[in-house]
Amino acid sequence: MAAENPSPSEALPPFDPDLDHFARLGLRPGYAVDRDAVEAAYLERSKVVHPDRFATAGSGTRRAALEHSSALNEAYRVVRDRVLRAEYLVKLGGTDLDSSDPEGGAPKPEQAFLIDMIERRDAIDEGGVDLDDLRDSVEDELEAALASAVAGLDAGDHASAAAALVRRRYLDRFLAEIDDAIG
């Protein structure tokens, strides 16, 4: 039974910077997550490490509480988002989509895909494209790319998941441009 005023230093577990986002939340790494469980884990853990609880503790403990909280916030932001979660799982598998490094960075898409990305934009510039229809279609393609990435992750095929997520990034960028053009 905890005392009424637990010693803050005892209550705060040591901060481990190397924990992955899933472990940080006490979850098993994987694409399928129960959103309610993620939220519950986040709230419960946030309470334990909240800096307000350690306002009168020593500076080391206060800093550890801040590190815990910000790492927990980041874990929650990533794990609850369906795209960020997929990208993060690919990163745990060794591919960092934010890097252009040929080793371990985002894989290059097929040349045909890039040509398509240029030609579809050329078509917009030349006029006569129904932007709303195009927008719907690109949104469908974004969903399909994510579904393909998730299928890859579920099958343990990180390379195909990474390739699908790269296509998704190009499409996401294209969608933003279409939105700009629609105004």
Partner: peptide, 13 residues
């Protein structure tokens, strides 16, 4: 030449 930057989605011809 058509190339792209996967991390940000830029494409260049």
């Amino acid at each position: 030449g058509i190339v792209g930057a996967p991390a940000c989605g830029d494409v260049m011809k």
